[in-house]
Simulated assay, not measured.
Amino acid sequence: MGADLDGDDTLEERAAPETDAVTFEWDGVRSGFLTCLPVALGVGGYGIAFGVLANQAGLSVAEAALMSGVVLAGASQIVAIELWADPIPVATIVATVFAINLRYSLMGAALQPWFERLSGTKVYGSLFFMADENWALTMRDLKAGNGRGAFLLGSGIAIWVFWVGSTILGVVAGGVVGDPTQYGADFILVAVFVALAAELWEGKPSLVPWVVAFGTAVVTSQYLPGRWYILLGGLVAAAVEVIRYDR
């Protein structure tokens, strides 16, 4: 067992049964970081693409790196840059980014059964580094019963390092590197998500929410602009599951 990161275990952490124990140790950070490295490489491809777009929009290296370091949300950052103009349409950008990132509320809620045993400092510090990719990896790790609450933090740090670093590379050398999608880098994350989805599959119980989420997302994407279909797919599937379990 590794040492606790900050020594402030809550009563819930100490009282949790051994089978449900959730720890927050350096081993979890290390495991999350190493596990996420291959995925982070794929994220770097998108980071270069964002850096190229940021450079074309007139952002400096420092400005683009600051956005990536603070926001850490590839889809919303790229959309924000695509909406960039003079003067900057602040209200439009904020509303669009808000819609895209609402899905994180659902992702965070999925972690609640494990993270409720951790202190607020550990939870919110980890959630800052949460992205789609390391969330899926963390869910897989927690469902496997490893109880490594720091896995999200470690995997998120890996993504953060590659995302910020590739953003800088895209701004500085985007003209030389070119569009990373021409090398097939955009397919890396698709392949990762397919593999993770297969591991998160729990048999027939997963069929109904997955089909509902997929169907809702496909239909709403035809009628609503932006990325609202992502959030609506998750909300409808969650509502269906609540109704099923209440019966």
Rank of each mutant, 00 (worst) to 15 (best):
G2R: 05
D9M: 12
D9Q: 13
E12G: 06
E13F: 05
A16C: 05
E18L: 01
V22Q: 08
E25S: 13
W26Q: 07
G28D: 02
S31A: 10
A40G: 13
L41R: 07
L41F: 15
G42T: 14
G42I: 11
G45P: 04
G47W: 00
I48L: 03
I48Y: 01
I48K: 00
V52Y: 01
A65K: 00
I78R: 08
I78M: 12
V79P: 03
A80H: 12
W84I: 07
A85H: 06
I88S: 04
I93G: 00
A99D: 02
G108S: 03
G120C: 12
Y124W: 14
A131M: 14
E133F: 03
R140P: 04
L142C: 05
N146M: 11
R148K: 14
S155V: 05
F162Y: 04
V164N: 00
A173F: 01
G178E: 00
T181I: 08
L189P: 09
V194G: 04
A195W: 05
W201A: 06
W210V: 14
T216F: 08
W228Y: 11
W228F: 13
Y229S: 15
G233P: 11
G234P: 03
A237D: 05
A238Y: 14
V240T: 08
R244W: 11
R244G: 13
